[in-house]
Design a binder for these strands. Structure first.
Lengths: 334, 334
DNA sequence: GTGAAAGCGCTAACAA
DNA sequence: TTGTTAGCGCTTTCAC
């Protein structure tokens, strides 16, 4: 019943158990960890005693002596977003196979304060995986030697980077839309602080090369935001005949808005998402999307962290920059 | 450049830095941790040296001396399922506010081996949150004193339990369907190993009390599984006029199947999901569902873990069993 | 401003 | 079978 022998709620240590049991700490270790070389009766007695006293081995002491698998912090802007979720799942999957731990942290994406989240976990992790806008240098400073691997980085400079080939994605989508005979194409982006985002620029460039006019819309980066933005568009005569959304969630919002306005998708307006999250398939109409292989994201990211941790790849080196390609998934919405 | 001073890849410790810097380990600590009482020039010099040597403080040694927030393992059967994802998000959210760490682990749900996942992390966590069918006793044994909190437990016996009030959910859904004049209602469950699942039993009982015939269907617990099951149903004349799915993902699969068979939802067949995951709103038709408050799940679970860890609530006690209620979210599918 | 000593809680190696 | 010693890497006194 009692949680600790003294009234102070000091942690119960192996010594407490040893003392109360009239044995050495060594014997307690042997009992607790099922090690050989201990009388079964002593073992039972000590285990029972430990249980009574409420003894739990300190993970720190244990780790200090025996070591442990790597522990990687994952710092995510919006955990409720299915895209981030898909990446987390994949990373966890691959990390688990290596016996690593992934510790998850969330920060409000509006406040761009990945830093605060990193500060919170820095002391207890060996590396950090995150997404980031600004404040990169400060984050690396907090982490010291521990590598920071950024996914879809906006600015260069992290120890490791996993990027997406937006130029290739633009080729895939634009060529597809051209083949469909679409002429008034818009790219629907989340509102960047200023100018065009990296991905929007890739689309702009690619459209330029194809001699295709491409307009840009911006919406708050959620289904609701896209819905609002596209709704107001449907009231005008300026509705494009194809919409490329910067992610699937936004594409879904756009489709909802078009449906609500009685516009047929894809007949009147083709909609293409980006990401390839699982729910795209469950929608009506099913979502056409340029998809990234989430399993590959996890595999690549975890491998990169491992290489960095092992010193096989120096932080910031060319080999620490890895790029993933999209592929087209044709379904109903385009 | 060099990762470690010796050719052995032994970890670089504070002593190495101290020795190479011709100072004591204290001075290194002060430099690294920005502590007062150190000459600024010494600090710079040591920091630079530490950087060169590739020194990173051991999280174990640091934790041992200074302590750290709790670390809770979360062990999930299918991370790709949006339901589990929503719960994880909420738990992480509430845990982060307390300065805790959540470390995520996945295990293949078919192999019901939560145990293996727990064994992998047991030594490095203070508590575990999970879902479980069987093997509960073995899991608790591995964890020793560390509390195991089960969500939606099938069998009692964990240190803490967060359950869902299926009877109440059954009342809500059945009454709603009765008010709609539905008479041929089916409950679509995932296939349990034998007999009816706990939740199905609650629905059976409630239907009995209302004098309502309720039939049971079972499908593999995924959208695809539900789709297959309902598809084969639409070919018969036995199609019910209302379908209650044990979760939203399954409901979505059912809706897809009905749409594909040209059956109108909700006119010909009403569909109600359970969970209230976010995408329900984005579907066409939008999903009617008995919803659980995910924020509440996280808040309740984390609070329970805290109470258990603090010893405020003894493991297995009545106060360690908490039950959450559903609420009806009426949208288009019913 | 700096260093020496002690100790956090545990386990590996060696004695008894 | 059991106990003793030493040490993991760090920080906290406290002395200089």
């Amino acid at each position: 019943m009692a949680l600790s022998p003294d009234s102070k709620n000091r942690r119960v240590t192996i010594k407490d158990v040893a003392r109360k049991g009239g044995v050495s700490t060594q014997t307690v270790t042997r009992a607790i960890n099922d090690m050989p070389g201990i009388n079964i009766r002593t073992k039972d007695r000590i285990r029972k005693l430990a249980e009574e006293l409420g003894y739990t081995p300190s993970r720190f002491a244990k780790g200090l002596v025996q070591g442990a698998g790597s522990c990687v912090g994952m710092v995510v802007p919006e955990l409720t977003n299915p895209y981030f979720h898909a990446v987390v799942s994949s990373v966890v999957h691959h990390a688990t196979q290596r016996g690593w731990q992934i510790t998850l942290n969330e920060y409000p994406s509006d406040a761009d304060n990945m830093m605060l989240a990193i500060e919170q976990i820095a002391a207890q992790v060996d590396a950090v995986i995150g997404w980031s806008g600004s404040g990169l240098a400060a984050c690396q400073r907090v982490l010291g030697r521990r590598p920071l691997v950024l996914l879809d980085p906006e600015y260069p400079g992290a120890a490791g980077e996993v990027s997406f080939d937006y130029v290739h994605a633009a080729q895939l989508t634009l060529n597809h839309l051209i083949s469909q005979g679409r002429t008034r194409i818009s790219y629907l982006d989340s509102s960047p602080p200023q100018g065009l985002s990296v991905r929007a620029q890739a689309f702009a460039r690619q459209a330029g090369e194809l001699g295709l006019p491409l307009t840009f819309l911006s919406a708050e980066g959620s289904a609701k935001g896209a819905r609002t933005a596209v709704s107001s568009l449907t009231e005008t005569n300026l509705l494009p005949d194809a919409l490329i959304a910067f992610n699937d969630v936004t594409a879904i919002g756009a489709i909802k808005a078009l449906a609500a306005a009685g516009r047929s998708v894809p007949r009147e307006c083709s909609v293409i998402g980006m990401d390839g999250i699982a729910i795209g398939e469950l929608l009506t109409p099913e979502l056409t999307t340029v998809s990234i292989d989430f399993n590959e994201i996890g595999a690549t990211t975890v491998q990169l962290v491992e290489d960095l941790l092992d010193g096989k790849v120096p932080p910031g080196a060319m080999e620490a920059k890895r790029t993933l390609k999209y592929h087209m998934v044709l379904r109903q919405s385009s």
